[in-house]
Design a protein around this nucleic acid. Structure first.
Length: 570
RNA sequence: GUCCCCAUCGUCUAGAGGCCUAGGACACGGCCCUUUCAAGGCCGCGACACGGGUUCGAAUCCCGUUGGGGACACCA
């Protein structure tokens, strides 16, 4: 009888999923798929101090967007997971289980109550560090069990495990066997003063209760693993298979974390305020002035996610993307994020027919090919340029209709930001034929969905009103004012051709313009560039046929007229 | 400070003792294509951290050095 493979992702609800967490979730999901097992989601909300419903919702939403679905876990108002959803798996709702484990351990004298105050422990730690030795909690000599148990009934206390006096070997599937000597496992806390379990207890009890067979997690947990094994032995339960994946770092080698955004925001905000004191008024409208001042002055403080978002918006800060939501906002496809993340520390090890390594794969490929043996051991730096290149390629590979659908829903979700940039997606979306041309011409020109609406982006010209763009002076001088005949003259005559043209589609437009060139004996550039300047304000745009077709005849004529009116010297 | 982990082009990586003159991708540079901007095609630049072993033979195994990362909470 083979055991059902169960993997899990167990985030604590402190904000949107960051890339490291997303990759861990993805790997766990993939392993379960590969082995025909279950992937479950468990919210580790045992810290009463930092814990938010909003964050839970955000994480669930992030996972659902990525397409990482759980067979077992929280059921949350239509977000992600299996509709049969077993759960909810919130540790805060499972306190009875942890207490039962504690009772068992205390009864067998494998755990004991301790009454030290946080201040006392703090003093001990300081003393240890002053003497340059490692602090290790040990039960005082002459400890009286029955007195302690009696005292436990009436005094606030924590419960600690009696750490075993033995070396514990972790059989890590990525790193190999790692030995931890007894001096590295002290009598750590299992249950806090507030009655909530610590992470260590909750994780061990739940992994056992949920039948978890494989634990894939970040490297920060490696040193916790011997503690977990010690606890499993005390409890008399199995030890799952462990695998620790390397961390994801910033370009400078520091660990990639949510704090990076906060730090970058402080620096950028200070610069912005220094450059323009008037910005203070705008910032004050968005977030509490006192909070803002406190945060600016104290590098250790952090803004709430909502405050940070508000500040980012009003000051137009360009903050680094670190969470899944950031990348979604930045216009990446979920499959691209998954693909890139998976490649950070894992690869399928396949060669393509042309000799290149397989780097691009789908979720289905991942589910089929994922294997622990191919997880790398070194840390990986997050390379935004490569992600962008992946995004570019994935977007270009989409069918026009698909691109359009993705772009439409992106625009809807981030409507306010799109509007703030001055883009009006409805302008092209309103007409299916024009929308399709837009999609086709944006696909190879946009590395992200957001690029299409960006203020200086390639789709800009099609998304603004006919009188809402300005003319690049240099382009006007070079392509309209100069030459014999001048661009203005050519514009006037080509206008007549355009006015009569039907159907108004890329191929026909291209042909008509080519014919016009032929007939009037001027080169293509002499016609195309003046048209581009008149239509988009600049000399750069998609091919002429696409540019005109996207705008539609009425807009094209209106823009030519406006250009003649506004830029032609009288 | 103590403990743990890691180490191939700038970055992600392939590499399981001879297939390695170390392969691919991104980035970068050049050329081609071209009505502009892209996209695409071709070419180029570019790495086994260092020092000792083991072996007929080391990027690959062992030891040390150096460098990087992580952990040392009543956070997870």
């Amino acid at each position: 009888m083979t055991e059902l493979v169960v993997t899990r992702f167990a985030p604590s609800p402190t904000g949107h999923l960051h890339v490291g967490g997303a990759r861990t979730a993805l790997f766990n999901w993939a392993l379960a798929q590969k082995l025909g097992g279950h992937f479950l989601l468990r919210i580790e909300d045992t810290d009463q101090a930092r814990n938010s419903q909003e964050a839970v919702r955000g994480i669930l939403d992030d996972l659902a967007w990525l397409g990482i679905h759980w067979q077992e876990g929280p059921v949350h108002a239509g977000v992600g997971g299996d509709p049969r959803g077993v759960g909810p798996f919130f540790q805060s709702e499972r306190l009875a289980r942890y207490d039962a484990a504690i009772a068992q351990l205390v009864a067998t004298d494998l755990a004991y109550p301790a009454f030290d105050t946080p201040e006392e422990l703090d003093a001990l730690r300081k003393a240890a560090s002053a003497e340059k030795r490692a602090f290790r909690y040990v039960r005082a000599a002459g400890w009286d069990r029955s007195a302690a148990l009696a005292r436990m009934q009436r005094e606030p206390h924590v419960v600690r495990l009696r750490a075993p006096n033995e070396t514990i070997v972790v059989h890590d599937q990525v790193l190999g066997d790692i030995a931890f000597g007894p001096e590295q496992i002290d009598d750590f806390v299992l249950r806090k003063r507030d009655g909530f379990p610590t992470y260590h207890l909750a994780v061990v009890v739940d992994d056992e209760a949920m039948g978890v067979t494989h634990v894939l997690r970040g490297p920060e947990h490696l040193n916790n693993t011997p503690k977990h094994i010690a606890l499993q032995r005390a409890l008399g339960v199995r030890t799952p298979i462990y695998a620790h994946v390397p961390s994801i770092q910033n370009a400078d080698g520091s660990k990639m974390s949510k704090r990076d955004k906060d730090k970058a925001a402080r620096t950028l905000a200070q610069q912005a305020f220094a450059a323009d004191a008037g910005l203070h008024a705008r910032a004050d409208a968005a977030i509490d002035a006192k909070r803002l001042a406190g945060w600016l002055g104290n590098p250790k403080s952090q803004l709430e996610t909502s405050e940070l978002d508000a500040l980012e918006r009003v000051l137009a800060l360009d903050l680094p993307s670190v969470t899944v939501e950031d990348f979604r906002h930045a216009g990446y496809l979920p499959e691209t994020v998954n693909n890139y993340l998976a490649l950070l520390g894992w690869n399928p090890g396949e060669k393509l027919a042309d000799g290149r390594d397989r780097e691009q794969f789908s979720m289905a490929d991942l589910a089929q090919k994922f294997a622990l043996e191919r997880i790398g051991r070194g840390n990986a730096k997050f390379d935004r340029a490569k992600l962008l290149a992946f995004s570019q390629e994935a977007l270009a590979a989409l069918a026009d209709a698909e691109w359009l659908e993705r772009w439409r829903s992106w625009c809807e979700r981030y409507r306010s930001g799109v509007a703030a940039s001055g883009a009006e997606p409805e302008r092209v979306l309103a007409d299916p034929a024009r929308a399709r041309v837009f999609a086709a011409s944006m696909k190879s020109r946009c590395a992200t969905l957001a690029a299409a609406t960006a203020p200086a982006g390639p789709g800009r010209f099609a998304l603004v009103a006919d009188d809402a763009f300005s003319y690049d002076e240099k382009a006007v001088a070079k392509w309209l004012a100069k030459g014999e005949p001048s661009g203005f003259t050519i514009l006037t005559s080509v206008r007549a051709t355009i006015e009569k043209l039907a159907p108004f589609e890329p191929t026909e437009i291209e042909a008509a313009v080519a014919q016009f060139c032929e007939a009037s004996g001027v080169g293509m550039g002499k016609v195309a560039q003046p048209l581009r300047v008149a239509l988009t304000g600049t000399a750069a745009s998609p091919p002429l046929g696409e540019t005109l077709a996207v705008l539609g005849r009425a807009a094209v004529l209106a823009r030519i007229d406006r250009c003649l009116r506004e830029t032609r010297p009288t």
